[in-house]
Design a protein around this nucleic acid. Structure first.
Lengths: 210, 210
DNA sequence: GACTGTGAAGCCATTCACAGCT
DNA sequence: AGCTGTGAATGGCTTCACAGTC
């Protein structure tokens, strides 16, 4: 079982499994089978076992998996046993919401700073986070490095912001701007396009026979 | 070219192509080749042609595609030549941000109502949208139907909200709650998990050799 | 000569089915 | 007997390569 080439779909499912296992643990369940996990999250049991097999052997034949143990293994695989520092660029509606979104904090992500280039917004407080000018980006990151940068600026300045984040030494970027960005090979990069999600719905609504 | 079984990845790319074509049209470009589209959005030219081939023949051999025409075809395929009515349930940070997110309006999505069950929030205004109690959900949708419901409530009430939306006659649901939901077969359904996106980054940050 | 449309080949992910433990 | 781990079979998406058209 080589560590090479793990499908992204597997990673997404691992994240779902981890939440299901957390729930199960809270309910006091000690042992769980691949079939029970599968039923709980809506995939096949073979899929669950294959996904886990990429990373090792975590179960006991004839018995199943220890819930707490498997949970911890998965969190470790996902890199969630340590805290991650995140900065957000773009303090519009979306950026501000993400800055205070509890779902990130719950999984160990710490929002360290939020930047914007609108002078009217500088100094504004989002809970205990103060919106700073984008000009400070490099100096702030030099003083307190962050691994992850989130881009929530309009499409036309997204590439510029991305370049700034890279120059400031960020290691990974999550881009919410509906804009194709080019980043160096060694930067971990991912696009999230909220509109696309609605568009997949409307495409399917247009399909015949449902 | 049967209409059957179009890969979801194709739909996502069509959405990206459409934005690229809109940009091209604004720049006054009349004709474009699959290779130029491919270069602009970071896929192969064969991929672009295959994606389009699912839906018909839009190009001219030896020439390429007419930008305006292809753009319109794709928007039609995606179901974006009509307006869609959207309601949001959950007026927390994320729900409020989505309610006012310009990226949706730009693509023809109209947010018609936003609901919450926190009495403190009822009556609050988000621009020209007033937060309503979730109890009104069914009556509001009865009076002015909407096709799409967006769920941005905490995980533990997401299933309940989903059931309410279904009962109120919604046709499609976009779920932002980190919770596996069960919905009837005939409802178009899609999950968006913002945390998962960060977790894919941290998984990749943990990988050796980069 | 340039570029589309598409069958065939290649590649990757999922499902099947069963050997191997407990 | 029950359930994991996994090679083999299947199915689906992407890439290749070229015939067809302008």
């Amino acid at each position: 079982m080589k560590t090479l080439k793990i499908p992204e779909a597997t990673i997404i499912r691992l994240s779902v499994y981890s939440r299901f296992l957390a729930q199960a643990e809270r309910r006091g369940i000690i042992t769980i089978s691949s079939g029970e996990i599968a039923g709980g999250v809506g995939v096949s049991s073979a899929q669950v076992r294959k996904d886990l097999a990429y990373f090792g052997e975590f179960g006991t034949r004839g018995v199943g998996y220890n819930v707490a143990e498997l949970y911890h293994h998965i969190m470790k695989i996902l890199g969630l046993t340590t805290e991650w520092s995140v900065v957000i660029v773009g303090a519009g509606k979306l950026g501000s919401a993400l800055a205070m979104y509890g779902g990130f904090r719950d999984r160990g992500f710490r929002i360290r700073a939020i930047f914007d280039n609108d002078p009217a917004k500088i100094g504004e407080k989002l809970e205990d986070l103060e919106i700073q000018t984008t000009e400070n980006l490099e100096s702030v990151l030099a003083k307190s490095p962050a691994e992850i940068g989130v881009i929530t600026v309009p499409a036309d300045v997204a590439q510029e912001v991305s370049d700034k984040l890279v120059a400031a030494g960020i290691k990974a970027i999550l881009n919410f701007a509906p804009q194709v960005l080019s980043v160096p090979e060694d930067i971990v990069f991912r696009n999230v396009d909220l509109s696309v999600n609605l568009e997949i719905l409307t495409f399917n609504l247009g399909l015949p026979r449902r």
